[in-house]
Amino acid sequence: MNTPIESRARRRALKTLAATGMALGGLSLGLLTPAQVLAAAPGMPLPDEAVADTLVRLFGDRKPQPAGEHIKLDAPLIAENGSVVPIRIESDLPMAADNYVKHVYIISDKNRRPLNAKFTLTPESGRLSMATNVRMAGTTDVRVIAEMSDGTLWEAKQEVKVTVGGCGG
């Protein structure tokens, strides 16, 4: 049985091979820079991105509306370091077959690359309730954006102050 990752990894590996082959072909013609060839590897650094650009990249011209009571975002007000910042999300947004939270995005505005992670849920998820630990480069707003199956966006936002320096522990 192929798990989704296996099959997707295989597809991507094939795609990466194809891309590399093409890129190398391109290189021989002097059309692509080495950086573009390297960009095919999934762990290569991506360029810095301002949060406004991240939002446009992810959502185009769709603007998230404040989720108010619909999303409860639980993050520490003060995090003693930015390496492990727990984020908990509870929501009463619908999870019905015809209208459900399809994706959840966690975005730390001031990070070099603001998108921390993107999650995909299904109507079988039953209820939006999830958690993870993220990294923050420093004091920043963290946003959780829920994307409904119809493309509607809901946003919850909170500032996390990250203290640095000192020793402690």
Binding site: A117, K118, L121, T122, T132, R135
Partner: peptide
């Protein structure tokens, strides 16, 4: 994550997820 072979939850993660990644998520 799959349940009885059916995908129930997926994540695309970046370097801005903490070391020893942890997730909690719902499955009906």
């Amino acid at each position: 994550a799959t349940y009885n072979g059916k995908t129930v939850f997926e994540a695309e993660t970046t370097q801005a997820v903490s070391q020893n990644p942890f997730f909690s998520f719902p499955v009906k």
